[in-house]
Deep mutational scan, measured.
Amino acid sequence: MSIQHFRVALIPFFAAFCLPVFAHPETLVKVKDAEDQLGARVGYIELDLNSGKILESFRPEERFPMMSTFKVLLCGAVLSRVDAGQEQLGRRIHYSQNDLVKYSPVTEKHLTDGMTVRELCSAAITMSDNTAANLLLTTIGGPKELTAFLHNMGDHVTRLDRWEPELNEAIPNDERDTTMPAAMATTLRKLLTGELLTLASRQQLIDWMEADKVAGPLLRSALPAGWFIADKSGAGERGSRGIIAALGPDGKPSRIVVIYTTGSQATMDERNRQIAEIGASLIKHW
C-alpha cells in the first residue's frame, strides 16, 4: 500500500456533525475584513475531517454560486457509477468541435482521439476544463441527475441546474447552481471519507484534487512546506470566486475548508488575494 493510499485508508468514516464552535475567531475577523475589502458577501466554513465538527463558520447557510467547484461533486457521481459497475474509467468518449465550450484547454486538443472518462475527470478537476465537465454531465444524465445524486447522499441544498458555462452566471437571489458552505463542506467530507465511494474511488478523487493546477493563487499560496492540500477552485460572473479544499500539516488532510464570495467589483487578483489571506490566517491560527 502506497503512502497516499495509507493516508486515505486511515481517515475515519464518522458522520458526526456538531454545532458551531468558534475556535479561532482571528480567522473570522479576516473573513469579515475580506467582505469589507471586496464589498461582497463571503461564506466560510472549516470542518474537522475526522469528526465533522464545525471549527469556524461565517454565513454557513447562505447560498453562493458553486461555479467550477461542482466538478468535484460531478466526478464523485461518476466514480459512484464506476463502483456500481455502470461506468468504466477507461471508456473512451468521442466528441466534436460543436461540443467545445469556452475554456476547454485539454479537450480542445483531443478532438481526433477523444478522451477516457478518467482523463475527462482529471481535466475537469485539475484544469477546470468546461467541455470535460459537460461531457461527464452527459454520462450521468445531466445537471438534474447530479442534484439527485447529492439528494441521495443527504445534501438537499446543493443543486446544479445548467451546463458550462451558463452555470457561472451568479445572478443575485437566483438559487440555480448554488450551494451553502455548510452543505458543500459536509458533502465533500462524505465523498472523501464516507462509505459512499470505495476506497479506490475516494483515493482517486483526492488524487485529482491534489493535482489541481489552477488554484495556485488561493490557499496554496499560503501553504507552508510539508502541508497537504487537495482543492478545487471556481470563478464566475459578478465577482464570484470560490474554493473547496481538504488540507492539513504533516502531509495529510485533517480539515475541510470552503470559501465562497460573490457580488464584488474587485479584480480577480484582488479576490484571489483576499482568499489567500484568509488561508494565511487559518494556517497561522491552526
Rank of each mutant, 00 (worst) to 15 (best):
Q4L: 10
H5D: 13
F6Y: 06
R7L: 07
A9V: 09
L10R: 03
I11D: 01
I11G: 07
P12T: 13
P12N: 13
A15G: 14
F17C: 08
F17G: 08
C18G: 04
L19H: 14
L19E: 06
V21S: 06
H24L: 10
H24V: 12
H24Q: 14
P25T: 10
T27M: 06
T27P: 05
L28Q: 10
L38A: 07
I45S: 08
L47C: 09
L47Q: 08
S51R: 10
K53A: 15
K53M: 12
K53Q: 13
L55E: 08
L55P: 01
E56R: 10
S57T: 13
P60V: 10
P60D: 15
R63D: 02
F64L: 02
F64I: 02
P65G: 02
M67E: 03
S68C: 00
T69H: 08
A77W: 04
L79G: 01
L79Y: 01
L79W: 01
S80M: 14
S80C: 12
S80A: 14
S80L: 12
R81C: 05
V82H: 08
V82C: 13
D83H: 03
A84G: 13
A84S: 11
G85M: 09
Q86R: 13
E87Y: 06
E87Q: 06
Q88L: 12
Q88V: 12
Q88K: 13
L89R: 03
L89W: 05
L89S: 05
L89A: 06
G90S: 14
R92W: 09
R92T: 15
R92E: 07
R92C: 07
R92S: 11
H94P: 12
Y95D: 02
S96D: 14
Q97R: 14
D99Y: 08
D99E: 13
D99R: 09
V101I: 10
Y103G: 06
Y103A: 06
V106R: 07
T107S: 13
T107E: 00
T107I: 03
L111V: 13
G114S: 03
M115L: 09
V117I: 10
R118S: 15
E119K: 04
L120S: 03
A124V: 09
I125S: 01
T126V: 10
T126S: 14
A133T: 09
N134H: 03
L135I: 08
L135G: 01
L136H: 00
L137K: 01
L137F: 07
L137R: 00
I140N: 03
G141V: 03
G141E: 03
P143T: 06
K144L: 10
K144R: 13
L146S: 00
L146T: 04
L146Q: 03
L146R: 06
T147N: 09
A148G: 08
F149S: 08
H151R: 15
M153N: 13
M153S: 15
M153L: 14
T158S: 10
R159H: 14
R159S: 08
L160I: 14
D161R: 01
D161N: 02
W163D: 09
W163R: 11
E164K: 12
P165R: 06
P165H: 05
P165S: 08
E166A: 14
E166V: 12
E166S: 12
E166C: 14
L167G: 04
N168R: 02
N168G: 11
E169K: 14
P172H: 11
N173I: 12
N173D: 13
N173S: 14
N173R: 10
D174Y: 02
E175N: 13
R176H: 09
D177S: 01
T178H: 01
T179H: 00
P181E: 00
A185V: 07
T186S: 14
T187L: 12
R189K: 13
L192S: 04
L197H: 04
L197Q: 04
L197R: 04
A200E: 15
A200T: 14
S201F: 15
R202S: 11
Q204G: 04
A211G: 10
D212R: 04
K213T: 13
K213N: 15
V214C: 04
V214S: 06
G216A: 09
P217H: 09
L218N: 03
L219K: 03
R220V: 02
R220W: 02
R220L: 02
R220S: 03
S221Q: 14
S221K: 11
S221R: 12
A222R: 15
L223K: 07
P224G: 07
P224A: 05
A225H: 15
G226P: 07
G226S: 13
G226F: 07
K232E: 00
K232G: 00
S233C: 02
S233F: 00
G236D: 02
R238S: 14
R238C: 12
R238L: 13
G239Q: 02
S240V: 11
S240H: 06
S240T: 07
S240R: 01
R241H: 03
R241C: 03
G242A: 11
G242L: 00
I243F: 05
I243G: 00
I243L: 12
I244D: 01
A246L: 14
L247Q: 01
L247C: 10
G248V: 00
P249V: 07
G251F: 07
K252E: 14
K252P: 10
K252W: 09
S254Y: 12
I256A: 06
A266R: 12
D269G: 12
R271S: 07
I275V: 00
A276T: 08
A276V: 07
L282Q: 05
I283Q: 05
H285N: 11
W286R: 01
